[in-house]
Design a protein around this nucleic acid. Structure first.
Lengths: 221, 221
DNA sequence: ATGAGTTAAAAAATCGATTTTTTAGTTAAA
DNA sequence: TTTAACTAAAAAATCGATTTTTTAACTCAT
């Protein structure tokens, strides 16, 4: 349940996390070249921590770095969205099966808790990023006991990439509700340890999200 | 065939690549804390480019970064080796199947070329890292036309992680020969477009490498 | 107009020094 | 002996300024 002990923060780690969120939320236009000096002003950070964060984001795949010409936001494409969604299908399916095979009672409890919190957030007005935050946490919890550090790492990375597309448009409560029903059904299947059905539903779930993301990408024009 | 145009290099990108190689080759002890000032001297670079490289390596997974207490080399463990090998099985198997489904004539040619160069390097005395370099290139070529940028990216990362274990010991010509036979058999199956058999052999191939890596890890003590 | 060459401005990369935090060593009280 | 408090040294992080490279604007010959 507990998250890793909150590590002491540095200017570098703070700006990294801030920029990561902003990039995932589409605060920067796809393809845009980042003006480092402007960022420095905008976020009120020094050049050194800022550059360290940008370097990390590039290694993580949320920025493109070109020697001697700085950093830019990766472009979006249908082809890449398909790639990301397909990889999510494969990797999260795999992770879910393993989690169901290995998850213990504590996991079951965490899962119920995460799903409940998500549903509640959905009912109350979503002020800010609460739903998104809880949604991320739910998916994390779902696959957490899969037993592979690397698998979890890749999935996290794919989620961030996927969300660059999914969050292009405004929030749609109707879609959220549909997704939320899938979340609860996923929990039910996970608790029943029905990995076959769970995986199939996970596929559907990702596919639903994919259609949302694709529609938004196409509207985006 | 052609690699991406050699980008202009910066002190930062050069030291990144140098350190990446050295980390994969076990030039630093597992668990070791990096003394930034010493690195600065040793590699004759300034602090800024060095820190940028270390940040990227941490995001890539070849270093662990802890706020306010610098960087250290990740420890090695049987558990992690198993994880990495298992992930390689899954991801490279997937990639190989797709590559066989999609690879064109140019790919077939590249593959024959890469396998040939690898074999030749194996026969002549291996001065330096030539074999390792060609081996990496062979595996890259094998899965290149899989169609997924993200899949390729993850595989690359896993190779680097895997090699931290595999390269712990001295070079073993006998093993290399066995691996090399598998390489050639893989090419043959790929050209025959027999993805079932190819995937099975890929599994064996990774398993063979895994046993080498495990033995070295255990000897390492 | 077009394009090669030139140059000023802007941006990226790097340096050298300063500030902050941690670590390790020392002393003194329990 | 422990352990708490303090302190000096070391290391990490950050800052401010300099150097290098790219970009964009301009000139002039074709």
């Amino acid at each position: 349940m507990s998250k890793a002990i909150p590590p002491v923060s540095t200017a570098s780690s703070r700006i990294y996390e801030t920029l990561r969120k902003d990039l995932v939320n589409g605060q920067f236009a796809a393809g845009e070249k980042l003006a480092i000096n402007a960022l420095k002003e905008q976020y009120q950070v020094g050049l050194s921590p800022l550059r360290e964060a940008l370097n990390k984001l590039a290694a993580y795949g949320l920025l493109i770095q070109e020697n001697q010409r700085g950093f830019k936001v990766p472009t979006l494409s249908r082809k890449e969205l398909d790639d990301i969604a397909q990889m999510r299908l494969e990797l999260e399916g795999m992770a879910l099966e393993r989690a169901i095979a290995q998850g213990d009672a504590a996991w079951e409890a965490d899962l119920l808790g995460a799903a409940h919190r998500l549903k509640r957030a959905d009912i109350s007005l979503d002020k800010g990023e609460e739903w998104e935050q809880l949604h991320t946490q739910f998916h994390r919890t779902l696959v957490a006991p899969c037993g592979s550090v690397w698998l979890l790492r890749f999935i996290e990375q794919l989620h961030d990439q996927f969300d660059r597309y999914r969050r292009l448009g405004p929030k749609m409560p109707a879609i959220r509700q549909e997704l939320d029903e899938q979340h609860h059904a996923l929990v039910a299947l996970a608790l029943k340890r029905d990995s076959q059905a769970a995986r199939q539903l996970m596929d559907e779930h990702i596919h639903t999200s994919y259609e949302v993301a694709l529609a938004r990408y196409q509207e985006h024009a």
